[in-house]
Computed example of a mutant assay.
Amino acid sequence: MINPILRSGVYAIINKRLNLVYVGITEDCFLIRWIEHLRRIPNYISDNDRTTLYLAEDTKYIVLKELDPNEYSKKEFYELEVKAQTFYKQKGWIVVSTSTFREDTNYSDWTSTKKSKNERYMQAISHMITTIGKSENQKDISTIYNSLYKEINQEFNTNVYNRSKKAILQELTAAELLYILLSLYPLYKVERLKYMRTQPRQMALQILV
């Protein structure tokens, strides 16, 4: 059974105590979008509501509706995103996200390729491992990679070391990359938020670079 956060559709980053919510869509998978949200927190240091939502300890990342991009058009994704945003607004919530949806626009089909998705996953993995390595007293990054590769070998009954001597990550399949993302996500989320909550000055400097 596929983990729900590896599916696509409409999601929310929500804080019921603060009545703050971000509503978004993804035609890839919820997991990669949530990782990207965490990675890009410094980009929103000037947006107080959004930063507060991201950094609050009781904020949750939830799936609102699963949608298969092979069955639903891009326009339908956007329509459901707007519907969810409207729902929260009518309840008096602060919705920190905006939608680019236009009723009179003819939307093209989804255009993500296998290569672009894998590159997206690899970029996320590199960032996650760097974050975790920094949090664990400068733990050797190569040690983390090798540990993950051993997990891949066992889980997929393969030997990734036979594929390449140097750029092993680039030789992994989409399923293997997603396995790594899912494996790293719980610890990454904890460490990323811990770091961001204690680095307001550094966050401000990053946004200026």
Rank of each mutant, 00 (worst) to 15 (best):
N146S: 11
Y145K: 07
L193E: 01
T158F: 01
T158W: 01
N157Y: 02
Y161I: 07
E191S: 08
D140V: 04
Q138N: 14
E155Q: 14
L148N: 09
R192P: 02
I180G: 07
D140Y: 03
N137E: 00
E155H: 09
A174E: 07
K165C: 11
K139P: 10
M196A: 05
Y149N: 06
K150G: 15
E136I: 15
V190Q: 11
K139L: 15
S164G: 00
N157T: 09
N162I: 09
Q170F: 03
R197M: 07
I180Q: 09
T130L: 05
L172I: 12
K150T: 10
Y185S: 10
S164P: 00
A167E: 05
A175T: 03
R201T: 15
K194M: 08
Q202E: 09
R163F: 13
I168W: 00
L193K: 08
T158G: 10
Q170A: 14
K165Y: 06
Q154E: 08
M203I: 13
V190I: 13
I141Y: 04
Q202F: 07
L184P: 12
I144R: 06
Q202K: 13
M196Q: 00
L182S: 11
I132D: 03
L178Y: 01
R197K: 14
G133L: 03
I168F: 02
S164D: 08
D140K: 11
Y161M: 10
L187T: 14
L177S: 13
N146E: 10
P186Y: 09
Y161N: 13
S164W: 00
A175R: 05
K194T: 13
Q154N: 09
Y185W: 12
Q199M: 11
R201Y: 11
N146H: 14
P186I: 12
L169G: 03
I152E: 00
L182V: 01
S142R: 09
S183W: 04
K150H: 11
S135W: 00
T130D: 04
F156T: 06
L177P: 02
E151K: 13
Q202P: 00
N157G: 10
Q138S: 13
P200V: 04
I152T: 03
V160W: 02
F156V: 10
M203N: 11
E136F: 14
D140W: 02
Y149Q: 07
K139T: 15
I152S: 03
V160H: 05
E171T: 12
N159H: 04
Y185V: 10
I180M: 15
